[in-house]
Computed example of a mutant assay.
Amino acid sequence: MTKPLNDNTAEPSKPRRRSKTRIAHEEKILNSAEFIFASYGYTGATVEKIAKHTGISKQNLLYYFSSKDKLYRAVLENILNIWLDKLNLLNQEGDSPAEKLKHYIRDKLKISQTHPNGSKVFANEIINGAPHIGDYLSNNLNKKLQADVDLVKQWIADGKIDVIDPYHLFFMIWASTQTYADFSTQIQLVLNKDKLTEQDFDKAGDFLCQVILKGIGLKI
């Protein structure tokens, strides 16, 4: 007997898997969108500019992302997912606080080096009060940060580091590493360089590790 169309016992349809071609096209669009949003801000960026930079038509772009707002949010979520995936202090290599923090700082700095435009878009969003991703931050960042804060509190309780405010430790690490993306132009002008090199980021990592680790009572 044929099942009626409204039979609730039928298995739910599985979500369609995105093809490799679609994923590649979306990544290309997101990379262009990062650059345009970083260069012009949300207001100055347009779907036309992003499509032109990607090398596709506006209609083709809207097939993948139906509006500028959805594309902007996708750019923000993409950079945040990269940060959240890499920046988990609990999962960093090493057993000691010094080893874990060194890897954490250098990984954060590496993201500033490889995703400077995404970092700039995120910074502009935060400066403007996080109107598009406030909910995303509350639901995703806070939970992961709390686990790292609890780890630092345990280090303090065990006498492994000085008594400090864990939240402000992370604020300092985020700000000092992101400045090499968000204010890269300023740094390049001061250093008289067209672009920051791998050596520049290595020097920055050495300096930040020394200052931050010594500042909380750790030896390098």
Results as ranks from 00 to 15, higher is better:
17 R>Y: 03
18 R>L: 13
84 L>P: 00
92 Q>M: 15
157 A>N: 08
137 L>K: 01
52 K>W: 09
169 L>K: 06
163 V>K: 07
18 R>W: 12
176 S>T: 08
71 L>W: 05
127 I>M: 09
88 N>D: 08
44 G>Q: 11
153 K>R: 11
9 T>N: 05
100 K>V: 04
214 K>W: 10
217 G>M: 05
60 N>W: 08
145 L>E: 03
55 G>I: 12
102 K>L: 02
69 D>P: 15
170 F>E: 03
134 G>S: 09
145 L>S: 00
105 I>V: 11
63 Y>V: 13
212 I>P: 00
51 A>R: 06
136 Y>C: 05
203 K>C: 08
113 Q>G: 09
16 R>A: 03
143 K>T: 09
1 M>Y: 09
158 D>H: 04
85 D>M: 09
65 F>V: 12
32 S>V: 05
1 M>T: 10
154 Q>P: 01
112 S>L: 02
121 V>T: 05
122 F>K: 00
67 S>D: 10
71 L>F: 05
199 Q>T: 12
47 V>T: 15
68 K>H: 12
93 E>A: 14
39 S>E: 14
164 I>Q: 01
111 I>S: 04
151 L>W: 03
198 E>R: 04
102 K>Y: 04
159 G>Q: 04
91 N>W: 10
157 A>F: 09
204 A>M: 06
38 A>E: 03
98 A>G: 06
212 I>L: 06
95 D>G: 15
82 I>K: 14
177 T>H: 00
84 L>A: 00
200 D>S: 01
122 F>V: 04
105 I>D: 00
98 A>T: 09
165 D>T: 03
75 V>T: 02
133 I>K: 08
55 G>S: 14
24 A>W: 12
28 K>R: 15
22 R>P: 01
180 Y>H: 14
183 F>E: 05
162 D>P: 02
3 K>Q: 04
71 L>M: 12
194 D>S: 14
213 L>P: 01
80 L>D: 11
29 I>Q: 00
13 S>F: 13
94 G>F: 01
94 G>A: 13
62 L>Y: 10
49 K>N: 10
23 I>M: 10
140 N>P: 11
208 L>M: 11
63 Y>F: 14
169 L>N: 01
71 L>D: 00
122 F>Y: 06
32 S>G: 11
34 E>I: 06
34 E>A: 06
185 T>P: 06
199 Q>V: 06
116 P>V: 09
127 I>P: 05
36 I>N: 02
